[in-house]
C-alpha cells in the first residue's frame, strides 16, 4: 500500500453569495481507494464533486493532487491547459447521463480512441485494436465498434463512457451517479463491471450517489452530506451498519428492503 495520498483536500468550500454549496470539506484519498459521497438532493455532493474535479472553482480551500512525477500540485494553481491535460490523461469523469460524456455522432471506436489520439497516438490500426479490447472489457460486442452511441441502449452507452475514460489508464476517476436512470438489472451489471475494473486497475475513485447500495458495493469509505456539510464519514460498512448521526440513521433506515 502506498504511503502518499493521491488527493489532499483541505477546507474546501463553495458559496453562492450566502448560500452554501459545500463547506469545510477535508479528506485524503489514497491510491486504490474508492470514496462514496452520499446524500440526497441539495446535499452539496455534486457541487463537491465538481470542485474536486476542477469543473467548478471553489470559494476557499485547496485540492492537491499527487502528480505522476511525484510532486503535489494545487489544482487551482495550475494553468487551464495543465488541468485539461490532467482531465484527459490521469483522470476520468463518468457523467450520470452518458450522452454528456460521449460524442454521440462519432463511432464507438472513435469515442474510445479519442483520448489516445489526443495524446499523440498516430497509428490507426493500434488505436482501433486498443478500442476493440476496451469494448470487450466493458462487455460491448466488438462488432459494434463502428456504430454510433446513438444506437446504443442506456447501459451500453454508460459502459462505453467508462471505456472512453479508462483507455488512458487514469489513476483517479470521478463518477456522478453512474447508475442513475438505468434499469436495475443493468445497474447490477454496471456496478459489477466498475468494481472489477477498479480492483484490476488499482484505480482510485470518488463516486457521488444517492443510492446506498451503490456505496456499499463500490466504496471503501463513505462521506454523508447534508446541506453542504459532511456530517459523517468513515469506513463504508461502519457508516451503513452503525450510523451515528441522526441524518445518517434516517438515510439508512429509509432503504427499502427487498
Amino acid at each position: 500500500m502506498s504511503d502518499t495520498p493521491l488527493l489532499k483536500v483541505r477546507d474546501l468550500s463553495k458559496f453562492y453569495g450566502k448560500r452554501i454549496g459545500c463547506a469545510n470539506v477535508a479528506f485524503e484519498l489514497w491510491p486504490g481507494e474508492v470514496l462514496a459521497i452520499v446524500g440526497e438532493s441539495g446535499s452539496g455532493k455534486t457541487t463537491l464533486l465538481n470542485c474536486l474535479s476542477t469543473r467548478l472553482m471553489p470559494t476557499t480551500g485547496s485540492v492537491e493532487y499527487h502528480m505522476r512525477d511525484g510532486g503535489y500540485r494545487d489544482l487551482y494553481h495550475m494553468s487551464e491547459a495543465e488541468r485539461r491535460f490532467l482531465m484527459r490523461t490521469d483522470w476520468g469523469f463518468v457523467h450520470q447521463n452518458p450522452a454528456d460524456g460521449l460524442r454521440m455522432t462519432v463511432s464507438a471506436g472513435a469515442n474510445v480512441g479519442e483520448r489516445l489520439m489526443a495524446i499523440g497516438n498516430r497509428h490507426y490500426g493500434n488505436i482501433r485494436n486498443t478500442a476493440s479490447d476496451w469494448l470487450e472489457r466493458v462487455e460491448i460486442s466488438t462488432d459494434r465498434i463502428d456504430d454510433q452511441p446513438r444506437a446504443f441502449s442506456g447501459g451500453m452507452r454508460q459502459r462505453l463512457q467508462i471505456a472512453r475514460n479508462l483507455v488512458t489508464g487514469p489513476r483517479l476517476v470521478f463518477m456522478d451517479e453512474p447508475t442513475g436512470g438505468l434499469d436495475v438489472s443493468v445497474q447490477a451489471r454496471l456496478l459489477d463491471l466498475v468494481r472489477g475494473l477498479v480492483n484490476d486497475l488499482g484505480l482510485s475513485a470518488i463516486v457521488v450517489t444517492h443510492d446506498l447500495a451503490v456505496a456499499r458495493l463500490l466504496s471503501h469509505r463513505m462521506m454523508v452530506m447534508k446541506d453542504g456539510y459532511v456530517i459523517e464519514q468513515g469506513l463504508t460498512d461502519r457508516v451503513l451498519d452503525d450510523p451515528r448521526e441522526p441524518y445518517t440513521q434516517l438515510l439508512v433506515s429509509s432503504i427499502l428492503q427487498v
Binding site: 462519432v106 471506436g109 472513435a110 480512441g113 479519442e114 490507426y124
Partner: peptide, 12 residues
C-alpha cells in the same frame, strides 16, 4: 485529438 477522430472515422 478531435481532428484525428474525423480522419479515424473516415478510415473506419
Amino acid at each position: 485529438g478531435l481532428m484525428h477522430v474525423k480522419l479515424y472515422e473516415d478510415i473506419a
